[in-house]
Design a protein around this nucleic acid. Structure first.
Lengths: 330, 330
DNA sequence: TTCACGACCGAAAACGATTTCGGTAAAATA
DNA sequence: TATTTTACCGAAATCGTTTTCGGTCGTGAA
């Protein structure tokens, strides 16, 4: 059995209340007994039982990280985000509890109600399934990470998808491209909308007409980037550039183009979005728009924690600027 | 306030004991009242308070994931490992609690003693700091992930570093190389030893002498792969191949060689280890030895959970085969 | 009819902390 | 000296479960 507060109280012939108070910095305990308690606690190697403390305090100092498993390229994304979240949480005395295999709505209800966490960071790409509204209706503090949410009652931290898409498209235009294709991904919801809007606005601003045949809708499945490029290359009037809505699609498209013997970026320029794939070599790097994943992680965690501490309920919505990274592919 | 077991007991005019027993599948409650309890619990949206349950049961159904933050390329490694761990944990009704910013030994003691988790998965690259022994002496169930440990009292799941290094070196030899360099990383401890042993044994088996000037010791810092290659290229008798102890070093070395105008793999072949960098394009891929991160994660979690359930204390040590992935760099 | 035995239920004791509330003694004030 | 304040401490309630231990009631067997 571990050492409890009672062990200390017995050894010192002092009540448990006093021991607890001494350990927790209450004022109504003399310096002498406080020292005594603290030193013997250290001696015995006492560590408070968290379950008991949580029960009594009605707080767990834990933040749940809710991730839907249908997220694409979880691995690349996750590592950076998680380490950012965990670090700032732990700085403020909280830990992160992972919920990755949540599929049922009842599980989400359980998480919200069982008081296992003080709040949630939600990374959820599915838009249509009402999960976020469900969480919101439960009243647990939470912040949505990485995605804009329509409702203004909900806090989120998201990259500036519109501007990022605008800038990268302008970059392609500046390179002389006018036939610029774009791959969409409707499941991404607001993210898709914003990046698409950035793309079209850049074209419109430059007086370039938008050609529907250059806009390819992709699905969540591997090889969809490859297929999209195949489709584009079949066109009688091929595009000279592609802006893929995210890097994995760009990579697939690149592979397809290379296999067709095309020279990148001479025959076709390719840009992506997200910027999480590490650049492996100096060659073959892909132009992209980089999200500040770490900063966003830190910010969202700070927002959540301060909201929990202050019990405030007002929603904050923050957008982070993105960074255009120009590499060999354009 | 949330719904408690007492709310149900009041509404049904039944004792809390019976409610609890009905909910937990005890036999000494009639089917009728059981149904009644279960349905009204669902009606009221009852979810058990975890802190209370944990306190009473002396168990939390949580697994701590202890990661030392000095791990190199955490992000790439982490994502895949964590999702593997979390998935198998959640399948068995446990969740993962993250400890990433642990630096003090006292923090580790706190984790072991505060009963916040039932066990630990330890990902700790530092060998010399005695952390693992400390955890072991605390008696909490734990499994070391990704690394062989000397002591046979400690459970671990590790890749077969020796064989992986042996095979990749043999691969280089088969390609006709005899001047094969190797970059070491002493901080990696047993991992370093095993890969080094694989390298030397492959050379010895082939009757190739081991040349000390081809063995470069690298430190934990970015650019060390680049520097190692610089050093090698300064040699009067340059090596024709390099086996880097991990991929990041290989990437750095590759970049250096390319900048020097060398053709890979004609002028110099390069192989790495780990296989976690995603292959971005068909070109510029790097030969490597892939660790089965996901399988190892699943296995280590299963080992830990069964050990917790059965209270067994015997240590299991499992080594996973690696896979040689031959790509363009050799 | 009596006794034993299940089936079913409730009271109450944990689990280990926090926190309120009151009480005693010493110190300060009148 | 009498009274109030202050400093310090302890008893006990509380958080929401789980689990042990009896107790009651009805049914079957003797």
């Amino acid at each position: 059995m571990s050492i409890t507060i009672e062990d200390i109280s017995k050894q010192l012939q002092i009540s448990v209340s006093t021991v607890s108070k001494a350990l927790n910095g209450y004022k109504d305990v003399s310096p002498k007994t406080r020292d005594l308690v603290v030193t013997t606690a250290k001696e015995l190697g006492y560590q408070p039982n968290m379950a008991a403390r949580n029960l009594r305090r009605g707080r767990t100092d834990k933040i749940g990280l809710l991730i839907n498993n249908s997220i694409q390229y979880v691995s690349e994304y996750l590592g950076e985000v998680i380490s950012g979240l965990a670090l700032t949480a732990e700085e403020q005395g909280s830990n992160i509890l992972l919920y990755t295999a949540v599929t049922e709505k009842s599980d989400i209800l359980a998480i919200c109600r069982n008081r296992e966490v003080d709040g949630l960071i939600v990374i959820w790409s599915d838009v249509t399934d009402g999960t976020i509204d469900l969480i919101h209706s439960e009243g647990i503090p939470f912040v949505v990470y990485g995605r804009r949410v329509e409702s203004d009652e909900i806090s989120y931290v998201a990259p500036d998808n519109y501007n990022g898409a605008l800038v990268v498209t302008q970059h392609l235009i500046e390179l002389g491209h006018e036939k610029i294709a774009f791959t969409t991904r409707p499941e991404l919801g607001t993210t898709n909308e914003d990046r698409f809007a950035g793309y079209t606005d850049a074209l419109i601003d430059a007086g370039i007409p938008i050609r529907p045949e250059y806009i390819i809708e992709t699905k969540i499945e591997s090889g969809s980037g490859y297929k999209a490029m195949q489709e584009l290359l079949r066109l009688p009037d091929r595009p000279t550039a592609l802006f893929a809505i995210h890097d994995l699609l760009a990579v697939g498209a690149m592979r397809c183009a290379q296999e067709q013997g095309l020279n990148i970026p001479v025959d076709i320029a390719i840009a992506g979005f997200d910027g999480l794939l590490p650049s492996m070599t100096t060659k073959s790097e892909i132009t992209t728009v980089k999200q500040p994943l770490q900063d966003m992680a830190q910010k969202s965690m700070e927002m959540l924690l301060s909201r929990i501490d202050q019990g405030s309920t007002e929603a904050k919505q923050i957008t982070y600027p993105t960074e255009l990274i120009i590499r060999a592919s354009t």
